[in-house]
C-alpha cells in the first residue's frame, strides 16, 4: 500500500491534471499557428507518459509480493500484470489504426469541428482526473469520495460518448464525411468508433464498480476491481491523447 497521505495524493493528481490541461491547450494553439507535427507528437508522448506514470501507476508492476500465492495481494499483483499485458495487446489495435491513418491520409486530415474536438478531449481529460481521485479515495478507505469521483467519471464518460457519437458523427455526415465517402471518412469513423467502443466498455466497468462500491464490497486493502477499472479508464484516455492530434490537429485540411 502507498503510505502517502490522502491529501498529498489528491494534490499530486491535481498537479498532473493541470499539466495535462496546459499541454492540451498548448497543442491546440500550436496546431492553429503552425505546422509542427513533430512537436505535437512530442507533446502527446509527454502527456501519455504523465498519465501512464502518475495515473495508471505503471511502477506498481514492480511491487514485491507480501504474502503467499493464495493471498489477496499476491493475486492482485498477478492480476495487475495480466491487465497490463491486455492493454499492451489492445494498444496494437490502436497502433494498427494509426498506421492505417498515416498510410491512407499522410499529412492531411478531415474537416472536423475544432471546438467540439477540444471540448470532448477536455471532457475525457477531466474524467481521468476524477477517476484518479476516486481511486485515491478508495485507497485511503474513503468510500464517499470514491462514489462521488466514480459517478462524475461515469457522467463525463457518457458526455464524451454523446459528444463523439451523438454530435460529431451526425455533424461530419452532414458535412459530407461519411463512412463511404472515401478514405478520410472511413478512417475517421473507424478510429472514433473503435475508441468509442472502448469508452462504452469502460462505462460498463464503471457502473459495476460503482454498484459494488456502494454496497461496500471494496475496502482500502481489497479493491482490485477499482484499480482495474481505473487503469482501463486511463488507458482509454491515453489512446485519445494520440487520436485527438491524429484526427484533429496534424496535417493540412483535406
Amino acid at each position: 500500500m502507498e503510505h502517502t497521505d490522502k491529501k498529498t495524493a489528491f494534490n499530486q493528481g491535481l498537479i498532473i491534471f493541470i499539466f495535462l490541461a496546459v499541454l492540451t491547450a498548448l497543442e491546440f494553439f500550436i496546431a492553429i499557428v503552425m505546422d509542427a507535427v513533430v512537436l505535437l507528437i512530442f507533446i502527446a508522448l509527454i502527456k501519455a507518459g504523465l498519465v501512464i506514470y502518475y495515473y495508471m501507476h505503471i511502477n506498481r508492476l514492480n511491487r514485491e509480493d507480501d504474502g503467499p500465492e493464495e493471498s489477496y495481494s499476491f493475486k492482485t499483483n498477478t492480476n495487475r500484470l495480466g491487465m497490463w499485458l491486455f492493454l499492451l495487446s489492445d494498444s496494437f489495435i490502436f497502433g494498427g489504426l494509426m498506421v492505417a491513418r498515416i498510410n491512407l491520409l499522410g499529412l492531411t486530415r478531415p474537416h472536423l469541428d475544432q471546438s467540439l474536438g477540444l471540448v470532448v478531449t477536455a471532457v475525457l481529460l477531466i474524467s481521468s482526473f476524477f477517476m484518479n481521485r476516486a481511486e485515491t479515495a478508495m485507497e485511503h478507505g474513503d468510500r464517499k469520495g470514491f462514489l462521488v469521483g466514480t459517478s462524475l467519471t461515469l457522467i463525463l464518460g457518457i458526455v464524451f460518448l454523446l459528444g463523439v457519437v451523438g454530435i460529431e458523427w451526425p455533424q461530419a455526415i452532414h458535412e459530407g464525411i461519411t463512412a463511404s465517402s472515401g478514405a478520410a471518412g472511413a478512417i475517421f469513423f473507424m478510429m472514433t468508433g473503435m475508441h468509442a467502443f472502448h469508452v462504452l466498455t469502460g462505462v460498463i466497468f464503471l457502473v459495476i464498480i460503482l454498484r459494488n462500491g456502494a454496497r461496500g464490497l471494496y475496502n482500502e486493502e481489497k479493491h482490485w476491481a477499482v484499480e482495474a477499472a481505473t487503469i482501463y479508464w486511463h488507458f482509454i484516455d491515453v489512446v485519445w491523447i494520440f487520436f485527438y492530434p491524429a484526427l484533429y490537429l496534424i496535417g493540412e485540411l483535406l
Binding site: S89, D90, F92, I93, G96, L97, A100, N103, L104, A179, S180, S181, G182, A183, A184, G185, A186, I187, F189, M190
Partner: peptide, 29 residues
Amino acid sequence: TQLIGLSFQLVMFQRLFDMGFFDGTRGGN
C-alpha cells in the same frame, strides 16, 4: 494477432458499411 484481427475487421467493414479502406478509387490502398 491484433493486427490480423484489425485487417480482417477493416475488410468486413468495407463490405458492410461500404468504407473505402482498400478501394483505390476512393483514396484507399
